[in-house]
């Protein structure tokens, strides 16, 4: 067992974990943050995407011990002071989700992407989402959701 300390959604957690425990399982099973989903075994689907030290990463391909000393934000911590993140708003406004399973990872990826590129083209958005599978929406409304969020952020509609 190894002791780790991870700051998750602003709160510090110290836990004893097996080295083989994945960060995704740590978040879900130890911290009960079940908004991070697991959809595959091969680091492909992106459902488990979270932010770690300011970067969008796939928590199913990272060990909990690797996150020792890191700051993690999950979907549960993306809204601030009860205010949804513009990407969350965008997904609701533009029907960017159906079953909701890929959605949390998709939102985390998109939020990171807009930090890097606040004014993207459609092609850039599609390229940026290549690590996240959605089987419900055909991506059409996901792209629109991200565009909506980009507009909202640039116009300062939502802080």
């Amino acid at each position: 067992m190894a002791q780790i300390t991870v700051k998750v959604n602003g709160k510090e957690h110290t836990s004893e974990v097996e080295p083989r425990l994945l960060l995704s399982h740590y978040l879900r099973d130890v911290l009960n943050l079940t908004g991070t989903h697991i959809g595959c075994d091969t680091s492909s689907c992106g459902s488990c995407t979270i932010h770690m030290d300011g970067m969008a990463v796939k928590s199913c391909s990272i060990l909990a011990v690797q996150a020792d000393g890191s700051e993690v934000t999950t979907i549960e911590g993306l809204a601030t002071n009860g205010q949804l993140h513009p990407v969350q708003e965008g997904f609701k406004e533009c029907h960017g989700l159906q079953c909701g399973f890929c959605t949390t990872g998709m939102i985390m990826s998109a939020a990171d992407f807009l930090n890097q590129n606040p004014d993207p083209t459609e092609a850039e958005i599609r390229h940026a989402l290549e690590g996240n599978f959605c089987r419900c929406t055909g991506y059409h409304n996901i792209v629109r959701s991200v565009q909506w969020a980009a507009n909202a952020m640039s116009e300062g509609v939502i802080e």
Partner: peptide
């Protein structure tokens, strides 16, 4: 707009 979205976009869906 969908009523169910609120729980899904905040990670509060319950699978």
């Amino acid at each position: 707009k969908r009523i169910e979205d609120k729980r899904f976009i905040t990670g509060k869906g319950r699978y």
